[in-house]
Amino acid sequence: MTEAAKEVFAVTGLSKVYDMGEVQVTALSGVDLTLRAGELVVLLGPSGSGKSTLLNILGGLDHPSAGRFFYQGRDLTSATDRELTDFRRYHVGFVFQFYNLIPSLTARENVAAVTEIAKQPMTPEAALALVGLEERLDHFPAQLSGGEQQRVAIARAIAKNPAVLLCDEPTGSLDSKTGIVVLEVLERINQELGTTTILITHNIVIAAMADRVIKLADGRIAGIESPTERLAARDLIW
């Protein structure tokens, strides 16, 4: 990581207010943040701190209520749906807590669903090999364990060779052993492919594998830390 590393994301004064009928819920308020290429950033914070909202906006899944949002210098704040779709299509890989695989497609086909619309994807087989699932290509989600499902989801996310990988609680529904396997995969992707990776968690242990840790509380950034010693995923214990 050099100081000259390119900025991938830059947000200023980002706010998001949800209109819940009779009440308004402020999920983010006035967030300023810059993320650099190749970084592995952990977003840490309790439930309701605004982690997912921030990730959704960075990933082009949602619009901010106020503030500005740049991706590689491009202002996406008021991007059209079509522009956001293209952004997601070519630049972003998502990993969700509950995998969100398409149940009617096999592992290979789930990945293919993304590679078929990407510009320079790897093959579904290669992507699944990267996550160690070369033996499970033709299994349906229902035939896979939770950890395997999440690895398919990661394969699906990275197969398009995205610039950024956004992971929302990727280990949230997994036991610690399986969770660590998944984190190892993410770590390897980050190091081998240089994919900027943003990882949401409320598990403080995971912060130890990050280049930077951004703590959120009540929709605001409560602190940014750069751990002095970055641990390997396999050395994490919880």
Binding site: R82, F87, Y90, N100, A113, I117
Partner: peptide, 16 residues
């Protein structure tokens, strides 16, 4: 709706 949302998250166009 959820599956549609996932396809959208992948970058599938509405038309597709």
């Amino acid at each position: 709706r959820e599956q549609i949302a996932i396809l959208k998250a992948f970058g599938y166009y509405d038309r597709a």
